[in-house]
């Protein structure tokens, strides 16, 4: 279980609290949707869960232990809305995928619906947004995560591409019992892909930890 326990976070001592005592749990193989207004801290929570930010108070546990990403890839992988900004533009798709530590065989064995083999030696700007987002997803899956945080991954894609990406994501995550936290504004989307949807309320201004 991926668990946030009373997590508090702010971007500096003199800044307001973005996360104020957040509790959240995602079970293995479970898909939880997180829906709420812009600027409310949903993405910040995603980054805290994936270990990109350290909570000021409270803790994040993965399967009842604090994650130790030094030795291997972090057990919680984050997939973001804009894949072109999540990759080095000077790297080919193959280099991007290899940076997870995966060897050639693992890359060659990837689901062809995720990464079309003919696209492996292309640069990010040479392939379409939908293809690039699938590469982004493939990269996260190559890191063999236990949990996946999908932050608005289909917000800038058309409906057909969106359905295709989510179908692939759900299929792969079900197969490997990966838990998914899906963050989006799009409630109908979350109700379709997630087992349950959590309504996110931004933390009230001026709240302080007890």
């Amino acid at each position: 279980m991926l668990q946030a326990d009373g997590v508090w976070f702010r971007h500096g001592r003199d800044r307001p609290w973005v996360l104020a005592g957040v509790d959240l749990a995602v079970g293995a193989g479970e898909v939880i949707g997180l829906c709420g207004p812009s600027g409310g801290g949903k993405s910040t929570l995603g980054r805290v869960l994936a270990g990109h930010l350290r909570p000021d108070r409270g803790r994040v546990t993965v399967d009842d232990a604090a994650p130790r990403p030094r030795r291997a890839a972090h057990p919680v992988q984050l997939v973001l809305q804009q894949p072109e900004r999540a990759m080095d533009p000077r790297w080919t798709v193959r280099q991007v995928l290899a940076a997870t530590g995966a060897d050639d065989a693992a890359i060659a064995a990837l689901d062809q619906r995720l990464v079309v083999p003919s696209r492996l030696d292309r640069f990010p700007h040479e392939i379409s947004g939908g293809e690039l987002q699938r590469v982004n997803l493939a990269r996260a899956l190559l890191a063999r995560p236990r949990y996946l945080v999908a932050d608005e991954i289909s917000a800038s894609l058309d409906a057909v591409t969106q359905a295709r990406i989510w179908t692939l994501l759900l299929e792969h995550c079900r197969e490997a019992a990966i838990g998914v936290l899906a963050i989006s504004h799009d409630r109908p989307l979350l109700e379709t892909v997630a087992g349950s949807v959590v309504d996110w309320t931004p933390s009230p201004v001026g709240e302080t930890p007890a």
Binding site: A159, V160, A163, W166, P188, V193
Partner: peptide, 18 residues
Amino acid sequence: RALWQALPGNGFSVAEGV
């Protein structure tokens, strides 16, 4: 039709061949 049917709430289906 594929665009419409791929919407969440309309089946979220991915039509083959489009």
